[in-house]
Design a binder for these strands. Structure first.
Length: 499
RNA sequence: GGGCCUCUAGCUCAAUCGGUAGAGCAGCGGACUUUUAAUCCGUGGGUUGUGGGUUCGAGCCCCACGGGGCCCA
């Protein structure tokens, strides 16, 4: 084409051809990007209105529809074009010489490419082969695509899937399904919590002091005050302040940020649900979490039995077993460990299991947890609550009411992955201060994940925090559990390194 | 952080022992009034991730770097 400038010559041929078409349309006074087109029906509505039209049948229904061109077939004086809507629903449009005339048909052949958005107006009919169609009497380009659609018959490479998710959504039904499932799950979680009297709040994402979890934060800078701020690693300490203020059932479902690795189970930003219930305890919230997960499965799939990506079925229905961390680990190892087992003995067991212990993690509770994960946690298939963790790894949890050395905490394991954690929350400000100080010592020894003393939070607590149960559940993890997909498939636009 | 695999046309992938870089879809030109990834005839398209090295000769072998994936920690 002669009307292209030099700097467009390194573009792929298909891109150049489409740019030229756009320029030609503009020169002819025909807008390749009209403000609107007179759509009267969605593709889904047309399909729903004519569920079983006989092959060759014609109706008097006149509709205006629009969608992305995903197939083009030209048999000379008759063109077939398949339009797709955002849900992947398709509808065929037929352009016949007899209906639109020679000029319009030639323009269609010259102007319309795969990937364009097209508007068509005409009667709803069924083709000879029984394909529901709009027999166009008029058509108009709704938006010109300058780049070609990828081949729709093959899945994109892993990299292109996440870098150009919009193409993945166009080409792959499972990608669209994940968006629908995630939305259904989020909506279900909110509705179930609202039904139980929980109030949703939004707490600070930019914090002067990160807290509420053991994780490394992202650091950012605020110019106006010239201070460093942290992206939150958990909403916990603010939600508890809300409970102190009288919001007795409170939750937040939003993004948190952890400056750690990114792999098939970890994303640096992910969605977390945390909820706190005054006058409840760890068993109250265990029941709550089970009900939320089961309701989410039903909302997304219509059943508590879900089909995973590998085709296997997985049932999250019914009651879920509860096991105790120390006794389950002892049983699996054949050696009894308790919260009183000396560190040296635990280290010997860790060595025997071939576990490498990070020097910052050489405390009895952490080593016991590593043993648990190795011998038990990784093998838990059905949804299981693991109860009663060591005190020294759970600085925000209250001590067990009768068992010494452990706290009233559970971790929920689903297919070997930690899905959620729940506590009888620590509400004694004096004990909380001691726990923070013990954490600060660990931080001084080089544990980047250790918590720091949060005076502002302690002051809130000193005004009287009611007894409560609380839990946290990763939304992305929940979707992984219910679908069997990797975390990057559950996140619409995961972070990808720039090329 | 460690190990392994991978990067070739717009997309998805081939290329034997180191010897002229190919296919399908998409594109371009043409035929065709009921197609369904339409069909038929003709045809263009490449800095093989980047930078070095070995070699008469590198998509292929070696080194470094970058992107992606899997496994381990």
């Amino acid at each position: 084409m002669t009307d292209l400038h030099d700097d467009s010559l390194d573009l792929p041929e298909q891109h150049r051809v489409r740019l030229a078409k756009r320029a030609r349309l503009l020169a002819e006074g025909r807008d390749p990007y009209p403000v609107s087109v007179p759509v009267t029906h969605t593709i889904a509505q047309v399909r729903a209105a004519h569920p079983d039209l006989e092959p060759g049948a014609e109706t008097d229904d006149v509709v205006g529809v629009a969608g992305r061109v995903v197939h083009l077939r030209n048999t000379g004086k008759l063109c077939f074009v398949s339009l797709a809507d955002g849900a992947g629903e398709r509808l065929q449009v037929m352009l016949s010489l007899a209906e639109v005339g020679e000029e319009s048909l030639e323009a269609f052949k010259d102007d319309v490419d795969l990937g364009d958005h097209l508007f068509a107006h005409g009667r709803v009919i069924s083709s000879r082969r029984g394909e529901l169609s709009v027999l166009a009497d008029d058509w108009q380009l709704a938006a010109k695509a300058l780049r070609p659609l990828p081949t729709l018959h093959k899945e994109s490479s892993e990299e292109n899937r996440v870098r150009r998710r919009y193409l993945d959504l166009i080409a792959r039904p499972a990608a669209r399904e994940m968006v629908r499932v995630r939305s259904a799950v989020v909506r279900s979680l909110r509705e179930e919590l609202h039904q139980r009297g929980f109030i949703e709040v939004e707490t600070p994402i930019l914090q002067t002091q990160p807290g509420g979890a053991a994780a490394r934060p992202f650091v950012t800078h605020m110019n106006a005050y010239d201070i460093d701020l942290y992206m939150r690693i958990a909403p916990e300490l603010f939600l508890k302040r809300a409970v102190v203020g009288g919001i007795e059932r409170v939750f937040e479902l939003n993004r948190i940020f952890r400056n750690e690795g990114a792999d098939s189970t970890h994303s640096p930003e992910f969605a977390m649900l945390e909820a706190y219930q005054a006058y409840g305890d760890y068993q109250t919230v265990a029941t709550l979490v089970r009900e939320l997960v089961q309701a989410a499965a039903v909302a997304a799939f219509g059943s508590t039995t879900v089909t995973l990506a590998d085709g296997t079925e997985y049932d999250v229905g019914g009651d879920w077993p509860q096991i105790e961390m120390y006794s389950a680990t002892s049983e699996a190892m054949g050696t009894t460990i308790t919260p009183e087992t000396p560190l040296e003995e635990l280290m010997t067991l860790a060595d025997a299991a071939g576990l490498e212990v990070n020097p910052a993690h050489v405390i009895p509770g952490k080593v016991s947890e590593l043993l648990f994960e190795h011998y038990v946690g990784d093998h838990l298939v059905e949804p299981t609550f693991v109860l009663h963790y060591p005190v020294d790894t759970s600085p925000l949890v209250r001590a067990h009411r009768s068992q010494p050395g452990v706290v009233e905490k559970w971790d929920l394991y689903v297919r070997g992955v930690e899905l959620a954690t729940g506590y009888s929350e620590l509400v004694d400000p004096v004990v909380q201060r001691e726990r923070f100080e013990a954490q600060a010592l660990l931080a001084a020894k080089g544990d980047h994940d250790a918590m720091r003393v949060d005076e502002d939070f302690l002051e809130a607590m000193e005004h009287g925090m009611p007894p409560m149960g609380g839990f946290g559940m990763g939304l992305d993890r929940l979707l992984m559990a219910l679908t069997g997909q990797g975390i990057r498939e559950t996140i619409l636009f995961p972070l990808v390194k720039p090329r």
